[in-house]
Design a protein around this nucleic acid. Sequence first.
RNA 1: GUGGCUGUAGCUCAGCUUGGUUAGAGCGUCUGGUUGUGAUCCAGAAGGCCGGGGGUUCAAGUCCCCUCAGCCACCCCA
Length: 438
Amino acid sequence: MSSPADLSTDPASGTRDFLPAAMAVRHRAFDTIRAVFDAHGFAPLDTPSFERLDVLTGKYGEEGDQLMFKILRRGEHEDTGEADLALRYDLTVPLARVVARYGSQLVTPFKRYHVAPVWRADRPGHGRYREFFQCDVDVVGSDSLVADASTIAAASDALAALGLEGFHVQLNSRKALRGLVAAHGIDPALETDTLVALDKLDKIGLDGVLAELDQRGIPGAAIDTLGSNLAASDPAEAVRERLESSADGRAGLAEVDTVASLLDDLVPGGTIGWSPVLARGLSYYTGPVWEFVHDGLDTTIASGGRYDGLVGMFSGNDLPATGSSLGIERILLLLAEQEQAPVGPDVVVTVMDDDGAADAMATAAELRAAGFSADLWVGTGKFGKQLKYADRRDARLAVIAGAREREAGTVAVKQLASGDQVTIERSALVDHVRSTLA
RNA sequence: GUGGCUGUAGCUCAGCUUGGUUAGAGCGUCUGGUUGUGAUCCAGAAGGCCGGGGGUUCAAGUCCCCUCAGCCACCCCA
């Protein structure tokens, strides 16, 4: 057993404590996002933070299985070291399970949003945690590309409502990617290797991609034709021509074009366009895939795609589905770089002496009933300390009622920012606060 | 998982190269500058087995090894 002095008080690696100042920012952001999703006609859903292990495994690809936080069996089986449960890795697979489980009870198409933490046993980094929140909007039960576009529109409206501008949506389709691989005569078995390399184009450049393709064993002839397509003066056009030669390629292009046209002017603060090499990591995507990329920091802030096969993995009957997910932690990181006004209570009610405590509680209650946030000093500290507390809480006003004020039927109200203080009739307090804070 | 950098007061860091009396600074905290006024000013105080373990040495915050943690890049991802 470790002694108290040996106990680290740091939160576990990749997790965070949210102190009040951070929580104010987070609550505001989550409220904004929920309001936008509501306005777009999506309904809230929540599911347990952990699922049966077999519900989660095999849905995300090999990488995902490794990064899952598994929960050991308990009771008489605890010695086996086996896991039978795991913390959810995303919000999409739980959605698929819910739809498979409650199918006919749900209104179809089922449009839901889900704001909740997920867990990944990943190595933490900048804007990357082992426990983090996702904000998902999905449509289950519609193969229409309007569904895909709806979730992209909701996500981009949410970003705009958060005050985030300057991003672009990169759009592609898994079908187009399959067509791309086929059109260059690459063995379908090498599809994943090919896509992983191509996906890095923005990051490591064309030469880097070609080198990695070679490393991953892609035939030289295919690398040459791919390279010449991507090096063309208009790579998108060159790839498009190539895709026209494959059925999958044509289907993928049609998806991309349709989704883009549906969204024409519906991406406030951003632009949308085809990105021929965007692949996305999760293995369950089947159709359109997209990523919201912040222009300045070149980081992904939201993403999504269509996953028509996922629900069928639970129910046996495929049900088309598509959705977008906001990377709220990265968005908050970006917003934090902008100046945030501190948010404290409107008023702190001070307590000059024990006789005034009941009066102070009543005063705070009265202010709350009038719609203000009112904090009340608790404790026995000196009066100067109470004002310091009010100042550090970033309160706008301090209400002061000592023996003098109480006897006179008055109350003093001090503005913390300016130091201005006035004494008014006690009965006029609410009106005074209202006009001062207006 | 691979490579590099960093761990000293609540926070941000100096000291380490050239081992040697009580390990420092700023900010924060607490107390005081008399009765009921914060954010400014002045004075004072508390607070550290120098991440942990081992080694070299008469002597280690300082040198060596191991370990843990954090940061950056890669991998992957939101």
